[in-house]
């Protein structure tokens, strides 16, 4: 019996599932991370120093401990507590929190970029505090930081590959399994790399384009 079978078209479905899982967990992390990041960024832009130090310290830990360690720690921890989660849920939680840590800084600088006078002008028109947030600060601040947001989102999509270490069948892990069967690492990894590039490159070009357009 031949132990190693070459790559064939039958593997396409397997690879596609890996691709979809990568896209899926990235989207979940980007969406949840952005929503939480927007909230936390707003709280940080509005809060006094002591709350900021506290919150900043927590976010600092999320940013200063490598993602791969966070993933291993979290799964081991919930495993030890007796509530093992499936790899997708555990990966989503950590990846979302990690994304939130970066997004909150992006959004915070967005909120800070809205001039105080513009908010005063809005209030002088009779808008309530919440209305100025909803109609002035969020739309203006978020436009200013869109390119940075896109940058974080793209790097999250690359970081999602690390979720493979806790057993989630995303693209990288799919590729690893194919490699161990076919023994064709170069070709498969090149294909995987090409896929990441094909998603990232047009998007980052788009980000540059938006950035240039907003400078005018």
């Amino acid at each position: 019996m031949n132990l190693f079978t070459p790559l064939s078209w039958n593997d396409a479905g397997f690879i596609l599932a890996g691709i979809l899982n990568t896209v899926y967990i990235s989207l979940v992390a980007i969406i949840i991370g952005s929503i939480l990041g927007l909230l936390v960024g707003f709280i940080r832009a509005e809060s006094n120093k002591s709350i900021n130090v506290l919150l900043g310290g927590f976010l600092d830990i999320l940013r200063s401990v490598p993602l791969i360690i966070q993933l291993i720690l979290f799964t081991t921890f919930i495993g030890a507590m007796g509530y093992p989660l499936n790899p997708f849920v555990a990966g989503s939680i950590i990846l979302s929190l990690y994304t939130m840590a970066f997004m909150s800084e992006v959004f915070r600088s967005g909120f800070d970029s809205v001039p105080e006078n513009m908010v005063k002008a809005a209030r002088s028109l009779g808008m309530t505090y919440l209305q100025t947030v909803r109609y002035v600060r969020v739309p203006i601040g978020m436009r200013a930081v869109f390119p940075s947001w896109l940058g974080v989102a793209l790097s999250v999509r690359k970081d999602s590959a690390l979720v493979s270490v806790i057993g989630y069948m995303e693209l990288l892990r799919t590729a690893e399994q194919l490699i161990s069967r076919t023994q064709q690492p170069l070709m498969i990894l090149l294909g995987v790399g090409l896929f990441y590039f094909m998603i990232s490159y047009p998007l980052s070009r788009y980000g540059k384009y938006v950035e240039r357009k907003m400078e005018i």
Binding site: S64, V65, P66, I69, Q70, I72, L73
Partner: peptide, 10 residues
């Protein structure tokens, strides 16, 4: 062990 590693990276 990984907790220690995390602290060390930090």
């Amino acid at each position: 062990f990984f907790m220690m590693a995390a602290v060390m990276y930090f």
